[in-house]
Simulated scan of single mutants.
Amino acid sequence: MEKQNYKNHRKYYPPHHFIYLPLLFLLGLLGIYNIWSDTENRLIWILFSVLIFLIFYLAVMVRQHYALGIQNRIIRLEFKQRYFEIFNQRSDEIAEKLRFDQLAALRFAHDDEFKELLYKALHENISGEEIKRSVKNWRPDDHRV
């Protein structure tokens, strides 16, 4: 497996992202095209297109909704645990001051960078993307959904 860094940290599920969703997209285009080219069966093609759009929408939303919700809760817990291990203090007040994108980005920083980037997030309000770009020693997250 390639070493994880900022450029390759996003994860894809090939059957879903490169087969199922493109196929639904093409079927949607076929339906929309046939609405105007097959005037005899226009209503059928409209219904087909609406059905394909609904399946596409559900495929995207349902797949991500539960996994991302659980993953976000785990990221918050990881932050609290890590903060406690580094500073030997509870992090409730600190965690409330940070946006989720900042919390999520901080997990990629090693402990020495974590302190500095946390300070910047709190006092300079840098974004999660800026935090990720600032990480010099990337700490991979190989177990995310």
Rank of each mutant, 00 (worst) to 15 (best):
M1L: 09
E2Q: 14
K3I: 03
Q4E: 13
N5R: 09
K7M: 02
N8F: 15
R10G: 09
R10N: 11
K11Q: 13
K11G: 08
K11L: 15
Y13L: 11
P14S: 14
H16R: 14
F18Q: 07
Y20S: 06
L21I: 10
L24E: 02
L24D: 00
L24K: 05
F25L: 03
L26D: 01
L27N: 00
G28A: 05
G28W: 04
L30T: 01
G31S: 03
I32E: 05
Y33V: 00
T39Q: 11
E40V: 01
V50H: 09
I55S: 08
L58E: 10
V62K: 11
Q64L: 09
R73S: 08
I75T: 08
I75P: 03
R76C: 00
L77R: 14
L77E: 10
Y83C: 04
F84N: 10
E85F: 13
R90H: 12
S91M: 13
K97A: 14
L98W: 10
L98Q: 05
R99N: 09
R99A: 07
R99Y: 15
F100E: 09
L106G: 04
H110Y: 08
D111T: 02
K115S: 04
S127C: 03
G128A: 02
E130K: 12
I131F: 06
R133I: 02
R139S: 14
D142T: 05
H143Y: 15
